[in-house]
Amino acid sequence: MLRTRSLLWPAAIGLLSSAALAAPVAASDGDPAPEAPDCVKVSAGWRYTFVTNGCDSPQYLTVRYADGTDVPCRNLSPGDSATFPGYGTQGNRVLGPHLCPTA
C-alpha cells in the first residue's frame, strides 16, 4: 500500500505542474478585447442590441455577452449604428461594446 501511494505522488505533482503551466496560456486566449470608448453607445434588448458610434473616428467593434456568445466585428463610421443579437430569454447579459483587432 505504501509503495502505491509513493508512485502516485510524482504523477499528481506532474499533473498539477502541467495545469499551472497551461493556465497562463488559457487565460491569455480568453482575455476580453478592450472596451470601446465612451462615445460608443449601446442599447440592449432581449431581441436586438443596437450600437451607435458617437465618436469622431471609425470604430471596429463587437459586443460581448456573459455567456461567451461570439458575434462578428463590424466597422462603424462616425454616426453609424449596427444591430447585434439581444440578450435573449435565457438570462444572458450584454457586457458592452469591445474593440476588435484590425483585420
Rank of each mutant, 00 (worst) to 15 (best):
M1N: 08
M1I: 14
L2H: 11
L2A: 07
L2T: 09
L2S: 13
R3F: 12
R3N: 10
R3W: 10
T4K: 12
R5F: 15
R5K: 09
R5Y: 14
S6M: 11
L7C: 11
L7M: 11
L8Q: 09
W9I: 14
P10E: 01
P10F: 00
P10R: 01
P10Q: 01
A11K: 02
A11P: 02
A11W: 08
A12T: 10
A12R: 03
I13L: 14
G14M: 08
G14V: 00
L15E: 04
L16D: 04
L16S: 04
S18Q: 10
A19M: 09
A20I: 11
A20W: 15
A23L: 12
P24F: 06
P24G: 06
A26H: 08
A26W: 14
D29G: 04
G30K: 15
G30P: 01
D31Q: 14
P32H: 14
P32N: 08
A33S: 03
A33M: 06
A33L: 13
A33W: 12
P34F: 04
P34N: 04
P34K: 06
E35W: 08
E35N: 11
A36C: 09
A36M: 07
P37K: 04
P37W: 03
P37F: 09
C39T: 05
C39R: 04
V40P: 07
V40Q: 01
K41N: 05
V42C: 05
V42S: 01
S43T: 14
A44S: 13
A44T: 04
G45M: 01
G45H: 03
W46R: 13
W46T: 14
W46E: 14
T49C: 02
T49E: 04
T49V: 06
T49P: 06
N53F: 05
G54N: 10
G54F: 02
C55E: 10
D56K: 10
Q59C: 05
Q59S: 05
Y60W: 09
Y60N: 08
Y60L: 09
T62S: 13
T62Q: 12
V63Q: 02
R64F: 10
R64T: 14
Y65Q: 07
Y65I: 07
D67G: 09
G68A: 08
G68V: 06
G68Y: 00
T69C: 01
D70N: 13
D70I: 15
V71N: 00
P72D: 12
C73L: 03
N75F: 10
L76T: 05
P78G: 06
G79I: 03
G79P: 12
D80G: 03
S81M: 13
S81K: 11
S81W: 06
A82K: 02
A82N: 06
T83C: 02
T83R: 15
T83V: 15
F84Q: 00
F84M: 08
P85Q: 07
G86S: 00
G86Y: 00
G86T: 09
G86W: 02
Y87L: 00
Y87D: 04
Y87P: 01
T89P: 06
T89V: 15
Q90C: 05
Q90W: 13
N92E: 08
N92T: 11
V94F: 03
L95Y: 05
L95N: 07
L95V: 07
G96D: 01
G96S: 02
G96T: 01
G96I: 05
P97C: 02
P97S: 14
H98G: 06
L99A: 08
C100N: 00
T102M: 15
T102C: 01
A103H: 11
A103W: 13
